[in-house]
Design a protein around this nucleic acid. Structure first.
Lengths: 335, 335
DNA sequence: CTGAAAGCGCTTACAG
DNA sequence: CTGAAAGCGCTTACAG
């Protein structure tokens, strides 16, 4: 039988109100009484029931985090950041894998709301009007990660993907690359679209035309990257650079390039996005755009909690753009 | 203002009891009444409050999962399996990173219990008496993953690490390797100790002596693997094989071996453990022992939920040993 | 400084 | 088939 506040009260010869006060560290309790209650708690092994408390105070100290897939290292880094930070503020995390499916997002958001999460962090590859409507109807605090509402109605923390891709491409063009292929996600979505926009902008500024047939869309995986690379190489067109929308694609590209006898970076340069920890341990080491993933999770959690606790102006600093870092490694020639 | 069961009752001109019955699909409600309630629910946008429900029925449909670090791909695969399976049974997951610290384990387990989790999945690198005592005092259902209570008092799902390491080593010896070095975790723990036991057993059976100075313990990371490899190579002793306790160590070893001019596998073979998805995409592809990580998570979740719901004999099938798979790839010579 | 009591939003015997 | 009422384990005005 679980011991409850009533049992402690009996043991300490006080009322449940008094026990509640010492449990919650409310100061107006006499030292002696407090000590008696503390002793009773220790003796009985009492642990407060957070569910009952939550019902009463209308707050669960639990936040939901919706991500496409926790087994993707990109997302697990974000979750790690969110988890560590949440814990500092005494919040816990309910983890939801959405597989980027909007039906699942809707269904699972309902579950989170029924469980009375104080807020939710939404991490995704895309942000569209359906998602926006869904999240706005939720009437609980929301912070987006990796994506943003471009109308600025919802808080978000992310990097500037357009700019990052633009600068990456500009740097690459400066290094002399001009026959550019791109490997992207067949599913599209805000993140890759923004990156594509940045790449095309830089190309256009340099008067470089990117052959549409060299923009390959496939599954966002090692295999997808390998297949798209094969298609690019098989086209017989001149290609000296493949820009991939993430590191998995780039690793698949690396492997396929080698298998087709291309030397990276001498014959062909390859770049990724996100900069997994593994990127600098493979050979050749992979050039990539580093996103501060842990920080995205951590900052999103803090922003959310501050909103929940009304600790700062709700309208202030709604969208937080974090710095990225372009890292050139062996998969790109020095000049 | 959130709409509650009372509001729906008013709207449908029935009692809250009736609304509760239709929400919970309890059959003894008249079809007409039911329809009226359903309409009222739709009209008001009512969502049941799971916290209130949990308090009443003494069940939260939430399980806690304690793992060392979600950003480690090994653990994120396990969590993914647990998440997907939990969801099938309508359970959610509260995620806790423990950093393998027993203070944090204790502290966070208390939080999980206060939040009235119906059960917890404990994933770790070690299982000792402190942990056992902690978990047994918890008086909630527990399933271990990756480790086990060798007295068999707690349910567990894992591979046979002794046997896996034994067979790996036996196979390697059969391939002709005899100057064996080992890279392990300085922190020890059940998992690596079991693996070490298996390796030493196979070596002993083959009358191979493993030089104690070639058993290097360091941090369980790429860098740790690199450093330990440096120490092994710098010892000047003959080494034709390094067995690493996980793939991160092995990747660090691979890199360091190359940097020191060793050709893998011609001069030196390297093997890992766990078989990350990346292992077959790096060069040379890494030989490793595959653990069914997703399945460990998935099965642990199912076992736990069945225990919670008393759906099967609590004493039956307490420890589930899953198959592993030794995968030889380019980092080991064919013969 | 302390306690009696109401109430958080549900579920479920019990009575009809 | 339906409703009134008790109760899940807490917190917190209110009164003293």
């Amino acid at each position: 039988m679980k011991v409850k506040i009533k049992d402690v009260a009996k043991e300490a010869h006080v009322s449940v109100a008094t026990v509640s006060r010492v449990v919650n560290d409310i100061p107006l309790v006499n030292e002696d009484t407090k000590q008696r209650v503390l002793d009773a708690i220790k003796k009985t092994g009492y642990k407060p029931n957070a569910i009952a408390r939550s019902l009463k105070i209308q707050k669960t100290n639990t936040i939901g985090i919706m991500i496409p897939d926790i087994s993707d290292p990109m997302y697990s880094d974000i979750v790690r950041g969110a988890e560590v930070t949440s814990e500092i503020y005494k919040y816990n995390i309910i983890l939801i894998d959405t597989d980027s499916s909007s039906e699942r997002e809707k269904e699972m958001l309902d579950v989170l709301l029924e469980k009375q999460c104080d807020g939710v962090i939404y991490i995704g590859k895309d942000f569209n009007n359906n998602t926006k409507e869904l999240l706005e109807r939720a009437n609980c605090e929301v912070v987006l990660g990796c994506v943003q509402d471009k109308d600025g109605d919802i808080s978000a923390v992310l990097i500037d993907n357009v700019e990052a891709a633009y600068n990456l491409t500009k740097d690459l063009i400066q290094k002399g690359y001009k026959n550019i292929a791109i490997i992207t996600d067949e599913k599209g979505g805000q993140v890759v679209e923004d990156r594509l926009e940045g790449i095309l902008k830089a190309a256009k500024e340099a008067d470089i035309e990117i052959d549409k047939s060299l923009i390959q869309a496939g599954r966002l995986s090692l295999n997808g990257g390998a297949k798209s690379t094969k298609a690019i190489l098989d086209s017989g067109k001149d290609v000296d650079l493949i820009i991939c929308m993430n590191d998995q694609l780039a690793m698949g590209a690396l492997k396929m390039a080698k298998e087709n006898g291309r030397n990276v970076p001498d014959d062909l340069a390859i770049t990724g996005f996100n900069d997994y920890w593994i990127s600098e341990w493979i050979s050749p080491t992979l050039s990539s755009v580093r996103q501060p993933l842990y920080d995205i999770g951590s900052i999103a959690a803090r922003m959310l909690i501050k909103k929940i606790e009304n600790m700062e102006d709700k309208e202030a600093d709604n969208v937080m753009i974090l710095p990225y870092d372009i890292r050139f490694r062996e998969s790109v020639k020095e000049n």
